[in-house]
Design a protein around this nucleic acid. Structure first.
Lengths: 161, 161
DNA sequence: CAAAGTAGTCAATCCAGTTGACCGATTCCG
DNA sequence: CGGAATCGGTCAACTGGATTGACTACTTTG
């Protein structure tokens, strides 16, 4: 059950929905930018995978599954797909013969860089509308909240998808 | 592809992800509150349905489908389910014999009220962390952005689900 | 060094959506 | 008017991305 969707009057409890709608608007914009460049739009789960692999050398499928919050079977399929598409490669793990060391290919890293640029562009549109100071405050406040809520636990990266 | 998930250093383009993570944290909290009360957790789509029906008397399945951004077939199934569960009722439409007038039952309205309370509670946690003034600014800024982006079009209520 | 546990895959199933086909009611126009 | 096109709703078949379950090969533990 999402928060109220009646925007006409401000009532307590609407901020969660506002977050969701704003995020949705930004992802729509992101995909529009990708489409303009003629790039294939990977799905959100793929992006989370890329980012995890970029910062975790020798990550395994099971590690990734834990990070994504889905089963290892689902992750295994997704990795196979990304490998087929040339974004990810699976090499023998250096210490565990059962495992595979996952890593981004050059193509994968290049896609990730582009994505970062596009997200910055999208964020820039927000800055254009509310101003740089407000954007900084927003950034800060969200980080504060997330840090408070996830004080002990790991941050759940998987949004709602 | 989602924005970067490396929180350790602030970089441009991270606000979209922060929005997503914050929203996810809030929905997690919302569901935790529901669970504490022993209430069955309806899915987000159901909540959007409730809110639409609450504010649109005599809404039809096709109206609802357009609002939700899914096909009328998918909507038809969801409505049947909610009717089975006693949240929604389908009555003959007053002017169109093909159509059904959808409406929340008392049980449906009661659930919606509870949901509003719980969302306000969740929002309150954010206020506790960042303060009431910052919360108000956040609310305002997000509304401004959403209004700017959806200047002409209808707001897309369906987040990513 | 045997028993228990772990990494990864294959297979079957599930679920919420899709497209396509259809019926009865309605609206549009020639 | 009355026929043609459209619209509301449902049934059926399919799809994509998840799930659970079962299994093999390797690793860790006692």
């Amino acid at each position: 059950m999402p928060p109220s969707s009646d925007f006409t009057e401000a009532r307590p409890g609407q901020v969660p929905l506002l977050l969701a709608v704003a995020y949705r608007a930004m992802t729509d914009r992101f995909h529009a930018l990708l489409a303009e460049l003629g790039r294939e739009p990977l799905r959100p789960a793929h992006g989370y995978t890329f980012r995890y692999l970029a910062s975790h050398p020798q990550a395994t499928t099971v590690d990734l599954a834990a990070h994504l919050g889905v089963t290892k079977q689902a992750t295994s399929k997704a990795v196979a797909e990304l490998a087929d598409w040339g974004y990810v490669e699976r090499r023998p793990h250096s210490t565990d013969k059962r495992a595979q060391a996952l890593a981004l290919t050059t193509r994968g890293r290049e896609y990730l860089e582009l994505a970062d640029e596009l997200w910055a562009t999208v964020e820039g549109q927000l800055a254009d509308v509310i101003g740089a100071e407000r954007l900084a405050a927003l950034d800060q406040d969200l980080r504060t909240y997330i840090a408070a809520v996830h004080a002990d636990q790991e941050v759940s990266f998987r949004p709602v998808w």
